[in-house]
């Protein structure tokens, strides 16, 4: 074998690393030797994209190489996530996977599920918020529930879209309490919010972060947060249980990092440590706080367990709204 000066130097460096750290396989010590690609299955400029870019902005500092964000939107996230799942499991292609992955199999869109990935780290779980316009007569969750009980179908509920977490959470709540509400699905959280701000729809159910600005400007009022704990960005908002309606199933929006199935354990170890550090980056923490995205830190098997539970919770939700079409 022809040994070039460079390969000799890097082998020597790797062996030196071996000696000092005591890790055995040579391959893991060499990884990562070039930039890593992070596929974001959503368009540039969105919240998930902002998260991915800020998280990996200082990657070089934490993992030794840069992380390049590549947007692969299309097919409601399937295109990008499929590209990750089918990529070479060498640790150089990773994905920022999102809630939608939990629903593909159940809604019949694609066979893709978390089973096609090696979960690395859960970055965020966002609770749904139940809100009304500031001048609404409904001051508490109880006001609204009581009114809705007395007047079936009359309460209109703006959601970010059919089948998304806010819609399913509300459907599950309504089922548990025996309520009948009228859903008005919008194409995303922002238009739904605008419809409630304009007084066209009674209630707004969206991911809590989408209401932040209007919570601060006091144009929208939170009735409750569909969560098991309070949210640091909305300290005075009660959880749904505190508002008097403990829910049997809790659905949460989520985002996380995953590698293709079959990625070697040694590489996953490097990635886990690297992303753990990136998630502690002050700039990333500041962005997450400003966007009101609660940070989560379930790694590997814990992340997998979380994904398993979400899928189990999703099934009755989708069945309730008639969107269950399991593959």
């Amino acid at each position: 074998m022809h040994i070039t000066r460079r390969s000799f130097v890097s082998t020597a460096a790797a062996s030196a690393g071996l000696i000092t750290t005591g890790i055995s396989p040579l391959r893991a010590a060499a990884y990562p030797e070039r930039d890593i690609t992070l596929i974001v299955p959503w368009a540039a400029g969105g919240g998930t994209d902002a998260l991915g870019r800020t998280l990996t902005k200082n990657a070089k500092q934490y993992i030794g190489v840069g992380v390049t964000v590549v947007n692969r939107p299309g097919g409601t996230g399937v295109a990008g996530m499929k590209a990750v799942a089918t990529a070479k499991p060498d640790g150089y292609t990773l994905g920022l996977i999102t809630f939608h992955l939990s629903s593909y199999r159940l809604s019949g869109l694609s066979e893709l599920s978390y089973r096609d990935f090696e979960p690395v780290m859960l970055l965020n779980r966002s609770p749904t918020g139940f809100l009304v316009k500031a001048d609404s007569p409904f001051k508490t969750m109880k006001d609204l529930v009581d009114y809705s009980k007395a007047n079936p179908q009359v309460v209109t509920v703006a959601t970010s879209g059919a089948g998304a977490v806010p819609h399913l959470s509300t459907a599950l709540l309504a089922k548990q309490l025996g309520l009948k509400v009228t859903f008005v699905p919008f194409d995303g959280g922002a238009p739904a919010r605008t419809a409630v701000l304009g007084g066209h729809v009674t209630m707004l159910v969206v991911n809590s972060e989408e209401a932040l600005q209007f919570y601060k400007s006091k144009q929208l009022r939170f009735l409750a947060l569909n969560s098991d704990e309070r949210h640091s960005s909305f300290p005075d908002v009660p959880t749904i249980a505190e508002a008097g309606y403990p829910l049997q199933t809790l659905l949460l929006d989520w985002r996380g990092i995953a590698a293709p199935k079959g990625t070697p354990k040694e590489i996953l170890d490097v990635l886990t440590v690297g992303f753990r550090k990136m998630a502690q980056d002050p700039e990333y923490i500041r962005l997450m706080d400003e966007m009101a995205l609660p940070r989560a830190n379930a790694e590997r098997d814990k992340f997998r367990e979380f994904l398993d539970n979400i899928e189990k919770a999703l099934e009755p939700g989708l069945a309730e709204v008639g969107l269950l079409k399991k593959i």
């Binding site: 368009a43 400029g45 969105g46 919240g47 902002a50 600005q213 209007f214 400007s217 400003e290």
Partner: peptide
């Protein structure tokens, strides 16, 4: 905080990354 079209949606993302949240 509602983008008027696709381009402004991306601009909104850019503002967000610079820690500026569009809205009231």
């Amino acid at each position: 905080g509602v983008p008027g079209d696709a381009a402004t949606a991306v601009l909104m993302g850019a503002l967000t990354i610079h820690n500026l949240q569009p809205g009231p």
